[in-house]
Design a binder for these strands. Structure first.
Lengths: 119, 119
DNA sequence: GATAGATGTTAGGTTAAGTCACATTCACCG
DNA sequence: CGGTGAATGTGACTTAACCTAACATCTATC
């Protein structure tokens, strides 16, 4: 009787399923992995297997990308290095503020532009 | 943004995953399907895809088999035909009584032997 | 207009899964 | 005992899904 409870973290989904669930392409999913943003397991035959948490992460990434962040930015946001140019606090807050993701129509990486309003 | 909520019913698991989750063989899983006990979806390429509910069903089947029921029995238990030789009530109860699945060391189909104790 | 980031696309190779047929095991029954 | 049916194993062969790697494309920035 295997534990079915830890399904959130169990890698049971092949990439095809993840594609459906996230509406990302295989190329994108693999690229994000190459950028160290997701770390699926592998089957004995080297096929990627994802958990539901992985899917959530991918959806987060998708959202952040749509909000104008670069993959490098997102990596920082997810694995906060201590005390970088942009104070972690602000950055953290930005993450939570995903609620107000209206102004997704900018260009360039948000982290390079700073967040403050300087008129 | 696809609905991730209905994961219980969404067919996202390939048979390989189901094998791991249930500890059944592909042969068994396919056979139970042939006996009309599970009905996975199919991908465009004809590969079976299962939901978590399907996995539960398979685990139920596995349990009932271990308890001495035949697949035909189990089919009856799952899709109760009205008013058969064995009163549905008794049968239903047997299902719930899976708690006490001690006496799995019998032979033959339970449904053919009747449940009553006649000394 | 060269560069870097993100993604598309194609080619070639391997694994996972599909069907189908035949073999096996075992309890049952005349 | 020999035959039968239910459940499962196994092998052959085919196809879908996935893998890596390389090269192309698009776009924003310098």
């Amino acid at each position: 009787m295997p534990d079915i409870g830890d399904l959130r973290t169990r890698c049971v989904l092949p990439i095809g399923t993840v594609i459906q669930l996230t509406d990302l392409t295989a190329r994108q999913i693999r690229y994000y992995e190459a950028q160290d943003l997701v770390h699926p397991e592998r089957t004995a035959g080297n096929h990627r297997m994802y958990s539901l948490n992985h899917v959530d992460t991918l959806l987060e990434i998708k959202g952040q990308l749509a909000d104008g962040f670069s993959l490098a930015d997102i990596k920082q946001l997810m694995h906060p290095r201590h005390h970088e140019p942009n104070s972690d606090e602000e950055v953290r807050q930005m993450l939570r503020d995903e609620l107000m993701n209206q102004s997704r129509l900018n260009q360039g990486s948000k982290l390079q532009q700073g967040f403050g309003f300087r008129p």
